[in-house]
């Protein structure tokens, strides 16, 4: 079976890979690019553990065919930090104990980044609805929500500062 050639930008790097036509972007990221941050929790778009940004939009990478990524700009959890400088969301997740097992954490961070990119001052309710597509079974969400709100505050301070 011939494979499909894909060129795209992942976390700032121009990359090329070969994939099967029916392969999910999640599998391509993990199998072809060895980017293991996005996780498969369900493979049906229900859990959000594979969340990525594609051209700025939040997507479940398990629901996208890898060839669809041709020409796109993709951000995964590995691309959120600025070099060694953690994104405020990552820092607040650590300080706020917003993770236990950590397997949903990459998806939550990407989804929360997508929220704060478009709404830098969300209410608790807005955070809860923005993250309703991401499942966490460990934390009961309390510390995740608090950490996202704390990160929004910190980012506002940085802008104002």
């Amino acid at each position: 079976m011939s494979r499909t050639h894909v060129s795209c930008n992942i976390n700032g790097d121009d990359v090329e890979f070969l994939c099967d036509a029916g392969e999910s972007l999640l599998d391509a990221l993990r199998d072809e690019m060895r980017l293991m941050g996005a996780k498969e929790g369900c493979g049906t778009g229900d859990c959000g553990a594979c969340s990525i940004l594609m051209d700025g939009r939040l997507q479940c990478s398990c629901l996208i065919f890898a060839p669809e990524a041709d020409g796109a700009a993709i951000v995964t959890v590995e691309g959120i930090a600025d070099g060694d400088h953690l994104h405020p969301l990552q820092q607040c997740f650590l300080e706020g104990a917003a993770l236990q097992c950590g397997v949903c954490t990459p998806g939550f961070l990407v989804a929360a980044k997508a929220l704060l990119d478009r709404n830098p001052d969300p209410t608790e309710t807005e955070v809860r609805y923005a993250l309703a597509g991401n499942l966490c079974r460990c934390t009961g969400y309390d510390k995740i929500i608090r950490s996202v709100l704390a990160a929004a505050d910190r980012m506002k301070e940085e802008v104002a500062g």
Binding site: M36, K39, E78, L86, Q90, L94, A97, L99, G102, V103
Partner: peptide, 23 residues
């Protein structure tokens, strides 16, 4: 006290290695 957990950093940058991540 409430220090940052030791395995936390790997988990927020996508480096923590779960069984399905091993190749």
């Amino acid at each position: 006290t409430r220090p940052v957990r030791h395995d936390g950093l790997d988990k927020v940058v996508g480096k923590a290695r779960y069984a399905a991540d091993l190749v």
